[in-house]
Write a protein that binds this DNA or RNA. Sequence first.
DNA 1: ATCTATTCTGAACCACAGTTCACCTTGATG
DNA 2: CATCAAGGTGAACTGTGGTTCAGAATAGAT
Lengths: 191, 191
Amino acid sequence: MSQARAPRADAVRNRKKILTAAGEQITAHGPDVGMDEIAAAAGVAVGTLYRHFPTKTDLVAAVVAEYVARVADDAEAALERVTGGTRAADELTAFLGRVVEASAADRAVKAAAQALGAEPVDHATEDRAGAAVAALIRAGQADGDIHPDVTVNDIYLLFSTAPTDQPPAARNRWLTLVTPGLTTARPPASS
Amino acid sequence: MSQARAPRADAVRNRKKILTAAGEQITAHGPDVGMDEIAAAAGVAVGTLYRHFPTKTDLVAAVVAEYVARVADDAEAALERVTGGTRAADELTAFLGRVVEASAADRAVKAAAQALGAEPVDHATEDRAGAAVAALIRAGQADGDIHPDVTVNDIYLLFSTAPTDQPPAARNRWLTLVTPGLTTARPPASS
DNA sequence: ATCTATTCTGAACCACAGTTCACCTTGATG
DNA sequence: CATCAAGGTGAACTGTGGTTCAGAATAGAT
Protein backbone atom coordinates (compact mmCIF):
# COMPACT_ATOMS: atom_id res chain seq x y z
CA MET A 1 0.00 0.00 0.00
CA SER A 2 1.44 3.41 -0.97
CA GLN A 3 1.90 5.30 2.26
CA ALA A 4 0.33 8.70 1.55
CA ARG A 5 2.75 11.46 2.45
CA ALA A 6 1.99 13.26 5.70
CA PRO A 7 0.18 16.60 5.21
CA ARG A 8 2.20 19.78 5.43
CA ALA A 9 2.25 21.62 8.75
CA ASP A 10 0.71 24.85 7.50
CA ALA A 11 -1.99 22.90 5.73
CA VAL A 12 -3.14 21.47 9.02
CA ARG A 13 -2.96 24.88 10.61
CA ASN A 14 -5.06 26.40 7.85
CA ARG A 15 -7.63 23.66 7.97
CA LYS A 16 -8.14 24.44 11.64
CA LYS A 17 -8.31 28.18 11.02
CA ILE A 18 -10.88 27.65 8.32
CA LEU A 19 -13.05 25.40 10.43
CA THR A 20 -12.97 27.86 13.29
CA ALA A 21 -13.66 30.87 11.12
CA ALA A 22 -16.45 29.04 9.33
CA GLY A 23 -18.05 28.20 12.63
CA GLU A 24 -17.85 31.77 13.84
CA GLN A 25 -19.08 33.28 10.63
CA ILE A 26 -21.96 30.86 10.33
CA THR A 27 -23.11 31.39 13.89
CA ALA A 28 -22.78 35.11 13.41
CA HIS A 29 -24.34 35.62 10.01
CA GLY A 30 -26.21 32.42 9.20
CA PRO A 31 -25.33 29.61 6.82
CA ASP A 32 -25.63 31.97 3.90
CA VAL A 33 -22.34 33.75 4.48
CA GLY A 34 -20.31 33.90 1.35
CA MET A 35 -17.25 31.76 0.96
CA ASP A 36 -15.36 34.99 0.48
CA GLU A 37 -16.29 36.17 3.94
CA ILE A 38 -15.34 32.92 5.56
CA ALA A 39 -12.04 32.98 3.71
CA ALA A 40 -11.39 36.55 4.79
CA ALA A 41 -12.22 35.73 8.40
CA ALA A 42 -9.80 32.83 8.26
CA GLY A 43 -7.12 35.02 6.72
CA VAL A 44 -6.92 32.77 3.71
CA ALA A 45 -7.79 32.91 0.02
CA VAL A 46 -10.97 31.31 -1.32
CA GLY A 47 -9.02 28.77 -3.24
CA THR A 48 -7.66 27.39 0.00
CA LEU A 49 -11.17 26.77 1.25
CA TYR A 50 -11.80 24.65 -1.78
CA ARG A 51 -8.57 22.78 -1.34
CA HIS A 52 -9.75 21.57 2.05
CA PHE A 53 -13.45 21.31 1.35
CA PRO A 54 -14.38 20.58 -2.26
CA THR A 55 -17.72 22.30 -1.87
CA LYS A 56 -19.48 24.68 0.45
CA THR A 57 -21.82 21.93 1.53
CA ASP A 58 -18.82 19.92 2.72
CA LEU A 59 -17.55 22.82 4.75
CA VAL A 60 -20.89 23.39 6.42
CA ALA A 61 -21.19 19.67 7.05
CA ALA A 62 -17.84 19.74 8.79
CA VAL A 63 -18.95 22.59 11.03
CA VAL A 64 -22.17 20.79 11.87
CA ALA A 65 -20.21 17.65 12.64
CA GLU A 66 -18.11 19.57 15.15
CA TYR A 67 -21.28 20.84 16.74
CA VAL A 68 -22.78 17.38 17.00
CA ALA A 69 -19.59 16.19 18.63
CA ARG A 70 -19.93 18.85 21.30
CA VAL A 71 -23.48 17.74 21.98
CA ALA A 72 -22.34 14.15 22.26
CA ASP A 73 -19.77 15.18 24.84
CA ASP A 74 -22.44 16.97 26.81
CA ALA A 75 -24.74 13.96 26.78
CA GLU A 76 -21.99 11.65 27.91
CA ALA A 77 -21.04 14.00 30.72
CA ALA A 78 -24.64 14.01 31.90
CA LEU A 79 -24.74 10.24 31.84
CA GLU A 80 -21.56 10.20 33.88
CA ARG A 81 -23.18 12.40 36.50
CA VAL A 82 -26.14 10.05 36.77
CA THR A 83 -23.80 7.20 37.49
CA GLY A 84 -22.53 9.47 40.23
CA GLY A 85 -25.94 9.74 41.80
CA THR A 86 -28.01 12.56 40.26
CA ARG A 87 -31.58 12.01 39.00
CA ALA A 88 -31.65 10.82 35.43
CA ALA A 89 -34.85 12.70 34.63
CA ASP A 90 -33.33 15.93 35.86
CA GLU A 91 -30.19 15.39 33.85
CA LEU A 92 -32.23 14.69 30.77
CA THR A 93 -34.33 17.85 30.96
CA ALA A 94 -31.28 19.86 31.94
CA PHE A 95 -29.47 18.42 28.95
CA LEU A 96 -32.35 19.35 26.69
CA GLY A 97 -32.30 22.82 28.17
CA ARG A 98 -28.60 23.23 27.59
CA VAL A 99 -28.80 22.02 24.03
CA VAL A 100 -31.62 24.41 23.28
CA GLU A 101 -29.71 27.16 24.96
CA ALA A 102 -26.51 26.38 23.15
CA SER A 103 -28.07 26.02 19.76
CA ALA A 104 -29.71 29.35 20.42
CA ALA A 105 -26.23 30.77 20.26
CA ASP A 106 -25.53 28.60 17.27
CA ARG A 107 -29.02 28.74 15.90
CA ALA A 108 -27.49 29.24 12.52
CA VAL A 109 -25.65 25.97 12.85
CA LYS A 110 -28.92 24.23 13.48
CA ALA A 111 -30.38 25.93 10.44
CA ALA A 112 -27.40 24.71 8.48
CA ALA A 113 -27.96 21.20 9.75
CA GLN A 114 -31.57 21.44 8.69
CA ALA A 115 -30.48 22.66 5.30
CA LEU A 116 -28.21 19.67 4.93
CA GLY A 117 -31.32 17.66 5.66
CA ALA A 118 -30.96 13.99 6.46
CA GLU A 119 -27.57 14.14 4.80
CA PRO A 120 -24.15 12.97 5.94
CA VAL A 121 -23.30 13.96 9.53
CA ASP A 122 -20.88 11.34 10.69
CA HIS A 123 -22.98 8.55 12.09
CA ALA A 124 -20.35 7.53 14.61
CA THR A 125 -20.49 10.71 16.67
CA GLU A 126 -24.22 11.04 16.17
CA ASP A 127 -24.73 7.59 17.58
CA ARG A 128 -22.43 8.48 20.43
CA ALA A 129 -24.89 11.19 21.48
CA GLY A 130 -27.80 8.87 20.82
CA ALA A 131 -26.39 6.13 23.00
CA ALA A 132 -25.82 8.47 25.92
CA VAL A 133 -29.31 9.90 25.67
CA ALA A 134 -30.80 6.42 25.43
CA ALA A 135 -29.00 5.41 28.59
CA LEU A 136 -30.26 8.54 30.30
CA ILE A 137 -33.82 7.69 29.32
CA ARG A 138 -33.56 4.09 30.47
CA ALA A 139 -32.20 5.21 33.83
CA GLY A 140 -35.03 7.67 34.26
CA GLN A 141 -37.59 5.04 33.37
CA ALA A 142 -36.05 2.69 35.89
CA ASP A 143 -36.51 5.42 38.49
CA GLY A 144 -40.09 5.67 37.34
CA ASP A 145 -40.13 9.35 36.53
CA ILE A 146 -39.85 9.23 32.77
CA HIS A 147 -42.76 7.93 30.74
CA PRO A 148 -42.19 4.30 29.71
CA ASP A 149 -42.74 4.93 26.02
CA VAL A 150 -40.27 7.77 25.62
CA THR A 151 -37.48 7.02 23.15
CA VAL A 152 -34.38 8.70 21.79
CA ASN A 153 -36.37 9.67 18.76
CA ASP A 154 -38.58 11.80 20.93
CA ILE A 155 -35.57 13.73 22.08
CA TYR A 156 -34.37 14.14 18.53
CA LEU A 157 -37.83 15.29 17.59
CA LEU A 158 -37.94 17.87 20.34
CA PHE A 159 -34.43 19.02 19.67
CA SER A 160 -35.08 19.50 16.00
CA THR A 161 -38.20 21.51 16.75
CA ALA A 162 -36.76 23.62 19.55
CA PRO A 163 -37.52 27.33 19.13
CA THR A 164 -33.89 28.26 18.86
CA ASP A 165 -34.63 31.55 17.21
CA GLN A 166 -36.84 32.76 20.04
CA PRO A 167 -35.91 34.98 23.01
CA PRO A 168 -34.87 33.22 26.24
CA ALA A 169 -38.28 33.65 27.85
CA ALA A 170 -39.97 31.80 25.02
CA ARG A 171 -37.34 29.07 25.09
CA ASN A 172 -37.89 28.49 28.79
CA ARG A 173 -41.62 28.46 28.33
CA TRP A 174 -41.21 25.91 25.56
CA LEU A 175 -39.18 23.71 27.87
CA THR A 176 -41.89 23.95 30.51
CA LEU A 177 -44.51 23.11 27.95
CA VAL A 178 -42.65 20.10 26.69
CA THR A 179 -41.32 18.57 29.86
CA PRO A 180 -44.64 17.13 31.12
CA GLY A 181 -44.79 15.01 28.01
CA LEU A 182 -41.58 13.27 29.04
CA THR A 183 -41.75 13.05 32.79
CA THR A 184 -44.24 11.29 34.97
CA ALA A 185 -45.91 13.73 37.33
CA ARG A 186 -47.17 10.97 39.65
CA PRO A 187 -44.80 8.13 40.48
CA PRO A 188 -46.27 4.61 39.97
CA ALA A 189 -47.67 4.12 43.46
CA SER A 190 -45.11 3.44 46.16
CA SER A 191 -42.70 5.93 47.73
CA MET B 1 -60.51 62.40 -3.93
CA SER B 2 -59.67 60.95 -7.36
CA GLN B 3 -61.66 57.76 -7.70
CA ALA B 4 -59.18 55.21 -9.04
CA ARG B 5 -60.53 53.51 -12.15
CA ALA B 6 -61.79 49.96 -11.59
CA PRO B 7 -59.23 47.28 -12.53
CA ARG B 8 -59.67 45.47 -15.81
CA ALA B 9 -61.50 42.17 -15.74
CA ASP B 10 -58.62 40.07 -17.04
CA ALA B 11 -56.27 41.68 -14.57
CA VAL B 12 -58.40 40.43 -11.71
CA ARG B 13 -58.58 37.01 -13.31
CA ASN B 14 -54.80 36.87 -13.69
CA ARG B 15 -54.18 38.03 -10.16
CA LYS B 16 -56.23 35.12 -8.94
CA LYS B 17 -54.50 32.66 -11.28
CA ILE B 18 -51.12 33.87 -10.09
CA LEU B 19 -52.00 33.59 -6.44
CA THR B 20 -53.30 30.07 -6.96
CA ALA B 21 -50.35 28.95 -9.02
CA ALA B 22 -47.92 30.51 -6.58
CA GLY B 23 -49.54 28.64 -3.74
CA GLU B 24 -49.38 25.35 -5.60
CA GLN B 25 -45.82 25.80 -6.76
CA ILE B 26 -44.60 26.87 -3.35
CA THR B 27 -46.25 23.97 -1.58
CA ALA B 28 -44.88 21.63 -4.21
CA HIS B 29 -41.33 22.84 -4.59
CA GLY B 30 -40.65 25.10 -1.63
CA PRO B 31 -40.40 28.87 -1.41
CA ASP B 32 -37.39 28.81 -3.67
CA VAL B 33 -39.27 28.16 -6.89
CA GLY B 34 -38.25 30.57 -9.54
CA MET B 35 -40.58 33.33 -10.59
CA ASP B 36 -40.38 31.83 -14.07
CA GLU B 37 -41.88 28.59 -12.88
CA ILE B 38 -44.69 30.29 -11.04
CA ALA B 39 -45.41 32.36 -14.08
CA ALA B 40 -45.43 29.30 -16.31
CA ALA B 41 -47.74 27.45 -13.95
CA ALA B 42 -50.09 30.40 -13.98
CA GLY B 43 -49.97 30.57 -17.78
CA VAL B 44 -48.67 34.09 -17.63
CA ALA B 45 -45.45 35.93 -18.41
CA VAL B 46 -43.02 36.94 -15.68
CA GLY B 47 -43.71 40.58 -16.25
CA THR B 48 -47.30 40.06 -15.22
CA LEU B 49 -46.20 38.69 -11.89
CA TYR B 50 -44.31 41.87 -11.28
CA ARG B 51 -47.26 44.02 -12.29
CA HIS B 52 -49.31 42.46 -9.51
CA PHE B 53 -46.59 41.93 -6.95
CA PRO B 54 -43.70 44.35 -7.13
CA THR B 55 -41.33 41.83 -5.64
CA LYS B 56 -41.12 38.14 -4.97
CA THR B 57 -41.33 38.78 -1.26
CA ASP B 58 -44.68 40.46 -1.77
CA LEU B 59 -45.98 37.50 -3.70
CA VAL B 60 -44.91 35.05 -1.05
CA ALA B 61 -46.36 37.29 1.62
CA ALA B 62 -49.68 37.24 -0.20
CA VAL B 63 -49.65 33.45 -0.31
CA VAL B 64 -48.84 33.26 3.37
CA ALA B 65 -51.63 35.70 4.13
CA GLU B 66 -54.11 33.44 2.36
CA TYR B 67 -52.87 30.55 4.44
CA VAL B 68 -53.23 32.46 7.68
CA ALA B 69 -56.77 33.36 6.69
CA ARG B 70 -57.61 29.67 6.28
CA VAL B 71 -56.23 28.95 9.74
CA ALA B 72 -58.29 31.77 11.18
CA ASP B 73 -61.41 30.26 9.63
CA ASP B 74 -60.57 26.93 11.18
CA ALA B 75 -60.07 28.42 14.62
CA GLU B 76 -63.33 30.30 14.43
CA ALA B 77 -65.18 27.19 13.34
CA ALA B 78 -63.77 25.32 16.33
CA LEU B 79 -64.86 28.09 18.65
CA GLU B 80 -68.32 27.91 17.12
CA ARG B 81 -68.48 24.21 17.88
CA VAL B 82 -67.57 24.80 21.51
CA THR B 83 -70.46 27.19 21.82
CA GLY B 84 -72.45 24.30 20.49
CA GLY B 85 -71.39 22.07 23.35
CA THR B 86 -68.09 20.27 22.60
CA ARG B 87 -65.16 20.29 25.02
CA ALA B 88 -62.94 23.32 24.53
CA ALA B 89 -59.76 21.43 25.40
CA ASP B 90 -60.57 18.78 22.81
CA GLU B 91 -61.27 21.39 20.17
CA LEU B 92 -58.00 23.11 20.96
CA THR B 93 -55.85 20.03 20.64
CA ALA B 94 -57.79 18.93 17.57
CA PHE B 95 -57.24 22.36 16.09
CA LEU B 96 -53.54 22.15 16.80
CA GLY B 97 -53.53 18.73 15.20
CA ARG B 98 -55.29 19.94 12.09
CA VAL B 99 -53.02 22.91 11.71
CA VAL B 100 -49.94 20.75 12.02
CA GLU B 101 -51.46 18.31 9.60
CA ALA B 102 -52.42 20.98 7.12
CA SER B 103 -49.13 22.79 7.27
CA ALA B 104 -47.52 19.44 6.67
CA ALA B 105 -49.09 19.60 3.25
CA ASP B 106 -48.09 23.23 2.99
CA ARG B 107 -44.88 22.85 4.91
CA ALA B 108 -43.27 25.04 2.34
CA VAL B 109 -45.71 27.78 3.11
CA LYS B 110 -44.67 27.66 6.71
CA ALA B 111 -41.05 27.81 5.66
CA ALA B 112 -41.92 30.81 3.56
CA ALA B 113 -43.60 32.43 6.52
CA GLN B 114 -40.51 31.78 8.59
CA ALA B 115 -38.39 33.28 5.85
CA LEU B 116 -40.52 36.40 5.91
CA GLY B 117 -39.76 36.46 9.59
CA ALA B 118 -41.70 38.82 11.81
CA GLU B 119 -42.58 40.77 8.70
CA PRO B 120 -45.92 41.98 7.33
CA VAL B 121 -48.67 39.33 7.40
CA ASP B 122 -51.87 41.31 7.69
CA HIS B 123 -52.44 41.82 11.40
CA ALA B 124 -56.20 41.89 11.03
CA THR B 125 -56.57 38.27 9.94
CA GLU B 126 -53.77 37.18 12.22
CA ASP B 127 -55.57 38.66 15.18
CA ARG B 128 -58.74 37.00 13.99
CA ALA B 129 -57.08 33.63 14.50
CA GLY B 130 -55.53 34.79 17.73
CA ALA B 131 -58.84 35.91 19.17
CA ALA B 132 -60.52 32.63 18.38
CA VAL B 133 -57.71 30.62 19.93
CA ALA B 134 -57.71 32.85 22.99
CA ALA B 135 -61.43 32.24 23.44
CA LEU B 136 -60.85 28.53 23.07
CA ILE B 137 -58.22 28.62 25.78
CA ARG B 138 -60.35 30.63 28.17
CA ALA B 139 -63.22 28.22 27.72
CA GLY B 140 -60.97 25.27 28.41
CA GLN B 141 -59.59 26.92 31.51
CA ALA B 142 -63.11 27.60 32.73
CA ASP B 143 -63.80 23.89 32.32
CA GLY B 144 -60.68 23.29 34.34
CA ASP B 145 -58.90 21.07 31.88
CA ILE B 146 -56.42 23.50 30.41
CA HIS B 147 -53.59 24.77 32.57
CA PRO B 148 -54.37 28.22 33.95
CA ASP B 149 -51.18 29.80 32.67
CA VAL B 150 -51.51 28.75 29.04
CA THR B 151 -51.74 31.67 26.64
CA VAL B 152 -52.17 32.25 22.92
CA ASN B 153 -48.45 32.75 22.68
CA ASP B 154 -47.94 29.18 23.76
CA ILE B 155 -50.03 28.03 20.84
CA TYR B 156 -48.11 30.26 18.48
CA LEU B 157 -44.91 28.89 19.92
CA LEU B 158 -46.00 25.31 19.45
CA PHE B 159 -47.33 25.98 15.99
CA SER B 160 -44.15 27.63 14.86
CA THR B 161 -42.10 24.73 16.16
CA ALA B 162 -44.32 21.96 14.85
CA PRO B 163 -42.36 19.24 13.01
CA THR B 164 -44.13 19.88 9.75
CA ASP B 165 -41.46 18.21 7.71
CA GLN B 166 -41.70 14.92 9.56
CA PRO B 167 -43.71 11.82 8.59
CA PRO B 168 -47.23 11.48 10.05
CA ALA B 169 -46.12 9.12 12.81
CA ALA B 170 -43.64 11.62 14.14
CA ARG B 171 -46.17 14.42 13.92
CA ASN B 172 -48.67 12.46 15.99
CA ARG B 173 -46.02 11.57 18.48
CA TRP B 174 -45.13 15.23 18.75
CA LEU B 175 -48.72 16.08 19.46
CA THR B 176 -48.84 13.47 22.19
CA LEU B 177 -45.64 14.80 23.66
CA VAL B 178 -46.86 18.36 23.70
CA THR B 179 -50.45 17.97 24.81
CA PRO B 180 -49.73 17.20 28.48
CA GLY B 181 -48.11 20.59 28.78
CA LEU B 182 -51.38 22.26 27.89
CA THR B 183 -54.03 20.11 29.48
CA THR B 184 -54.59 19.30 33.11
CA ALA B 185 -54.47 15.59 33.75
CA ARG B 186 -56.05 15.90 37.18
CA PRO B 187 -59.02 18.26 37.57
CA PRO B 188 -58.69 20.75 40.50
CA ALA B 189 -60.28 18.61 43.18
CA SER B 190 -64.02 18.21 42.87
CA SER B 191 -65.95 16.18 40.27
C1' DA C 1 -65.50 51.12 -35.29
C1' DT C 2 -62.20 53.74 -33.06
C1' DC C 3 -59.25 55.03 -29.63
C1' DT C 4 -56.52 55.03 -25.41
C1' DA C 5 -55.15 53.67 -20.88
C1' DT C 6 -54.26 49.45 -18.85
C1' DT C 7 -52.23 45.24 -18.87
C1' DC C 8 -49.31 41.62 -20.88
C1' DT C 9 -45.15 39.85 -22.92
C1' DG C 10 -40.54 37.94 -22.72
C1' DA C 11 -35.93 38.83 -24.11
C1' DA C 12 -32.33 41.13 -21.88
C1' DC C 13 -30.10 42.89 -17.74
C1' DC C 14 -27.78 42.60 -13.49
C1' DA C 15 -26.02 41.18 -9.07
C1' DC C 16 -24.53 37.82 -6.52
C1' DA C 17 -22.36 33.45 -4.83
C1' DG C 18 -20.16 29.20 -5.77
C1' DT C 19 -16.46 27.39 -8.21
C1' DT C 20 -12.28 26.93 -11.18
C1' DC C 21 -7.51 27.32 -12.67
C1' DA C 22 -2.96 28.98 -14.19
C1' DC C 23 0.55 30.63 -11.64
C1' DC C 24 3.22 31.64 -7.42
C1' DT C 25 5.03 30.21 -2.54
C1' DT C 26 6.78 27.36 0.69
C1' DG C 27 7.55 23.29 3.74
C1' DA C 28 9.87 19.23 3.75
C1' DT C 29 13.16 15.84 1.99
C1' DG C 30 18.02 14.32 0.45
C1' DC D 1 21.28 24.21 -0.26
C1' DA D 2 18.69 22.50 -4.00
C1' DT D 3 14.66 20.60 -5.48
C1' DC D 4 9.84 19.85 -6.16
C1' DA D 5 5.42 18.55 -5.09
C1' DA D 6 1.92 20.02 -1.77
C1' DG D 7 -0.31 23.97 -0.80
C1' DG D 8 -1.87 28.84 -1.47
C1' DT D 9 -3.53 32.82 -4.24
C1' DG D 10 -7.20 35.61 -6.25
C1' DA D 11 -8.87 37.27 -10.57
C1' DA D 12 -11.97 35.50 -13.67
C1' DC D 13 -15.69 32.42 -14.96
C1' DT D 14 -20.38 30.58 -14.65
C1' DG D 15 -24.95 29.67 -13.69
C1' DT D 16 -28.85 30.95 -11.42
C1' DG D 17 -32.73 33.85 -10.38
C1' DG D 18 -34.82 38.19 -9.40
C1' DT D 19 -36.00 42.31 -11.88
C1' DT D 20 -36.72 45.66 -15.76
C1' DC D 21 -38.70 47.81 -19.87
C1' DA D 22 -39.87 48.90 -24.69
C1' DG D 23 -43.08 47.30 -27.58
C1' DA D 24 -47.48 44.36 -28.58
C1' DA D 25 -52.07 43.28 -27.25
C1' DT D 26 -56.60 44.19 -25.44
C1' DA D 27 -60.61 45.60 -22.38
C1' DG D 28 -63.67 49.02 -22.07
C1' DA D 29 -65.42 53.70 -23.04
C1' DT D 30 -67.17 56.93 -26.77
